[in-house]
Nucleic acid binder design. Structure first.
Lengths: 243, 243
DNA sequence: CCTGGAATAATTGTATACAAAATTAAGTGC
DNA sequence: GCACTTAATTTTGTATACAATTATTCCAGG
């Protein structure tokens, strides 16, 4: 195949959104986050390439990015890369969720420092999202995927409202990895959404009142609790991909 | 040139530490951090390649990494990359230093949660480093580079003592970018090192006493002050590389 | 002088060929 | 059957060729 790019005559099946490395990246990331690519599983450049219909070059680019973000690790000590899907461990979950808490906490602090008008607008939006979250949590049977997404939307709103490009980039890189843990174990911990709803309420209140310190602390607490809960669940359910 | 790797018969001048992409990455990063590659300056793959004696492939890998970490940005909206050294702006400095504060704050919190024995060992080491820092600050004429490095050693000690691999990786990616700002403007703000020494003392005390919350807050305060000072200095001295 | 546009050059994206490692398979002697 | 060596295969690292895109130059017309 010649090295044509962005040709207008795309074949029908590949809708082609974004550059090729981007496509590969998105595809692999989804597979990892959703567990189709199991922790510890090997990633072979040529295989991915043929499977997705690209050459190794864009695949390599995507893998590098995934590696840097931590979705993928290379066998340590080896001279050659040998990439595998990162294992899910208790320690990693704890560390990761706490980091997300810090980043989102900073974002919350900054929202709480915005002018009153903006704050009320954001809090109103957050209230609505929290109500959504609560409703999804009450609904039986619980749709775990929707529940995660409702929570995600709420948190993301805080970040988008205040974060500059640096914090956004960092958050975008780290959050999906937390998602890996949360999605995997959410079914085991979604029994008690009331606690989360209350924590969200505390966050929203602090933002509305413009109390930066309190908003930051509330977000961090929220995540710290999540970290503890998930670490506990992993302790029971066992780690996956590490042995 | 054939694609030989890790050959034992390296030419004398290239001592070859690490893989080729790693070498290129290190080299470019240093050039950017030390300002040899000015903010806004163009980065051309072939030029870098010939200058360092490698082909475009490893250069590309290094550039990608630099881009993801934020040292380098691609012209927005363009279809092709067009990489340039990231500009130094007031807003970016503020955002970046606050992020570092959060990450190191989390590290400090974790150190403060370690068993007493370990905490006393770390605090002793930190005390020594802080004394070093103070001494360097008093010495006339002030060696700004040494002053930065003394500060850096102290902060790094906290991170190394407690951070897991995730936090370490994140910190290693973000901190050198803060370094870019600090090194550039340190000569303008190193007049008053006493404030920094005191802030360090507060951090060390909290760690010694095992007060996680206070340790975290102290580190964040330290960085928030630095952020404010540097943002102010940039306001006076003017931004570089953005226009 | 400067404005527009075609020709030219520079630069990046992608595929691919080949080399170096590393892994696996296959013998071989015991 | 098992340890050990060697051959074959797989997989990654690097260089390079070519295409697509973007920037630059140059020249005519006003």
């Amino acid at each position: 195949m010649p090295a044509r790019r962005k040709s207008t005559d795309e074949t029908a099946q590949e809708t082609a959104h974004g550059t090729r490395p981007e496509q590969v990246y998105q595809r692999l990331r989804d597979l990892i986050v959703q567990g189709q690519l199991a922790p510890g599983g090997r990633l072979v450049e040529t295989e991915i390439g043929t499977r997705l219909g690209f050459s190794r070059t864009p695949v390599r680019e995507a893998l590098q990015r995934l590696q840097q973000e931590g979705f993928v690790v290379s066998a340590p000590g080896a001279q050659q890369a040998r990439l595998t899907v990162s294992p899910l461990t208790r320690a990693d979950a704890h560390e990761l969720l706490n980091i997300v808490g810090e980043l989102e906490g900073l974002a919350a602090r900054w929202v709480a420092m915005r002018p009153a008008e903006e704050r009320t607008a954001v809090s109103a939006e957050l209230e609505a999202l929290n109500a959504d979250f609560q409703r999804t949590g009450r609904h039986t049977p619980i749709d775990h995927s929707r529940l995660y997404e409702a929570d995600e939307r709420l948190h993301r709103t805080i970040v988008v409202a205040s974060a500059g490009p640096r914090l956004m980039a960092l958050h975008d890189g780290v959050k999906p990895q937390a998602e890996r843990y949360i999605r995997m174990y959410i079914s085991l911990l979604s029994g008690d959404t009331n606690a989360s709803v209350e924590e969200h309420t505390a966050i929203i209140g602090a933002i509305r009142d413009g109390e930066a310190e309190r908003a930051q602390a509330a977000v961090q607490t929220n995540w710290r609790h999540a970290a503890e809960r998930i670490a506990m669940v992993i302790g029971i359910a066992g780690e996956r991909g590490s042995w």
